[in-house]
């Protein structure tokens, strides 16, 4: 085999690998959680008896449900121990550090999701729970930005969180760090 032929074959092999690794989603990747399922169509004794109406969940909304909802809640607002997303998380995207930080939070960084799916999940989550707090010229996360942010692991998450929030106060995005309080201690943000 000649050298040029070998390199051509290698190029074909690696471009194929790159396509499969990106795991790009179908066009409807925004997902939906607003469609509902007719209880009569669900073969389950209790759903039918109680008339429980379930949402149909797909795409990024499904990834949120599987990876985040258990603790953050389906409304983006849960117990005091879990930082609230609703009406708040979008503020982090006003600074470069904040954009990186919400990717680097341990359970986001380590989620069993590809960079492309994680980007779609973050964009969906930000618009769903905190659309009003996003900057006017909000740039959605791309696969590349998520991949880059994921290469950096935070030392102390709590310390980094404070730095990022103090930065948002300095930028004038928020007037006080109290907005970001979580846990039962009002000094913790």
């Amino acid at each position: 085999m000649t050298r040029s032929m070998a390199s051509a074959l290698l190029a074909i092999f690696f471009s194929g690998a790159a396509i499969s690794a990106s795991e790009s989603l179908p066009s409807a990747d925004a997902g939906t959680a607003h469609e509902s399922v007719d209880p009569a169509s669900v073969p389950d004794v209790l759903v039918r008896r109680n008339g429980t109406v379930l949402p149909r969940v797909s795409g990024a909304a499904e990834d949120y449900a599987r990876h985040c909802q258990g603790c953050h809640g389906h409304l983006g607002d849960s117990v005091v121990e879990v930082p609230r997303l609703k009406g708040r998380v979008g503020l982090f995207t006003h600074s470069a550090e904040g954009r990186a930080y919400i990717v680097q939070v341990p359970n986001v960084l380590q989620a069993h999701l590809s960079d492309a799916r994680l980007a779609a999940l973050l964009n969906w989550m930000l618009r769903e729970y905190s659309g009003a707090e996003l900057p006017g010229a909000f740039m959605p996360y791309t696969e590349a930005e998520v991949a880059l942010a994921r290469t950096h692991r935070l030392g102390s998450v709590i310390d980094r969180r404070r730095e990022v929030i103090d930065g948002l106060v300095r930028l004038g995005v928020v007037t006080s760090p109290e907005l970001f309080t979580f846990a039962t201690d009002p000094a913790r943000y």
């Binding site: 959680a33 399922v37 669900v42 389950d44 759903v47 429980t52 379930l54 949402p55 149909r56 969940v57 797909s58 499904e62 449900a65 909802q69 603790c71 389906h74 849960s78 117990v79 005091v80 121990e81 879990v82």
Partner: peptide, 20 residues
């Protein structure tokens, strides 16, 4: 039982939260 008032376990429930 995280976030609740008690960490004492009683039983496990399984609520449907959506159709995929």
């Amino acid at each position: 039982c995280f976030g609740g008032s008690s960490m004492v376990y009683h039983c496990s429930s399984a609520a449907i939260v959506g159709q995929v």
